[in-house]
């Protein structure tokens, strides 16, 4: 029956495209939850803008995965359940306060911007083309979140406390970003970006006057579909119309 979730074949290209698409969609969805509720009108516009970029990236990547498995972007986004989602645990974490949202964005953007930059040289031309567009967007996301993290770290005692608490809470989710997704030649190994990420994060934290958490452990499992409890709620909200009206066109 049409409500049944779709099955997606596992090839390196599909796995990579889906993992990155799921990252972008889930984070874009989280940011879109701020719309109308942000601390300033300017931030309402900025967060919606970043969300739109990420949803746009997700659509390009789903389209790419779909070319290889015959499913459209909506089948891939709306008809896979949480165990089939391949996103990082970091991006599904709830928005929390503004500091939590900014730290989540910064940790991710500092990684993904470098990854997209490297992917512009991918030997898979369709991925390289997506990378060319995505990198320009994530460079802005990185600048936006880094500038805010500095404002929050340096601003008031309260903003400093909240920014530090957000870092402490989210740092255990950062290491997952550096796990390999595929071993394919067209993929850039995330581990190769670790050093650059460390440098960039340390530099921003130093300017912000924040302390890098020791993170004695890290959480992992998103790439294998083992998620935190938050993702199921996000997907039930996102997917409900497609699931309630199987086969309908919107």
């Amino acid at each position: 029956m049409a409500t049944t979730s779709v099955a997606v074949p596992d090839t390196p290209l599909i796995r990579l495209a889906l993992a990155r698409a799921d990252d972008a969609l889930v984070l874009g969805h989280r940011l879109s939850e701020w719309t109308g509720h942000a601390p300033t009108l300017e931030e309402d516009l900025a967060l919606a803008n970043i969300a739109l970029d990420l949803i746009g990236q997700a659509r390009s990547l789903y389209a790419l995965a779909g070319e290889d498995c015959g499913l459209d972007e909506d089948a891939l986004a709306y008809r896979r359940d949480e165990r089939a989602y391949r996103n990082l645990l970091l991006v599904e974490q709830p928005n929390g306060d503004f500091a939590r949202t900014i730290v989540r964005q910064f940790l991710y953007a500092a990684f993904i911007d470098a990854w997209w930059q490297a992917m512009t040289a991918s030997c898979e031309p369709r991925l390289a083309a997506i990378a060319g567009k995505a990198e320009k967007e994530t460079a802005y996301h990185l600048r936006h979140s880094a500038e805010w993290l500095i404002r929050l770290g340096d601003g008031t005692a309260e903003s400093h406390r909240r920014a530090q608490a957000a870092l402490d809470a989210l740092f255990p989710f950062a290491a997952e970003m550096f796990e390999p997704v595929t071993a394919a030649a067209f993929d850039v190994a995330p581990a190769s970006l670790r050093e650059g990420w460390d440098r960039q994060v340390d530099a921003v934290l130093a300017t912000a006057g924040l302390t890098r958490p020791a993170a004695p452990w890290s959480h992992s499992g998103g790439r294998a579909g083992r998620h935190t409890e938050h993702l199921g709620h996000l997907l039930s909200e996102m997917q409900y119309l497609q699931r309630v009206h199987p086969g309908a066109t919107w």
Binding site: L25, S32, G36, L45, I55, R59, E237
Partner: peptide, 17 residues
């Protein structure tokens, strides 16, 4: 967050923006 397709989600988000 409940828009029924990615195209509709993007369009609605852009509209509210």
């Amino acid at each position: 967050t409940r828009a029924p397709s990615l195209r509709r989600k993007a369009a609605l988000l852009a509209k509210v923006q």
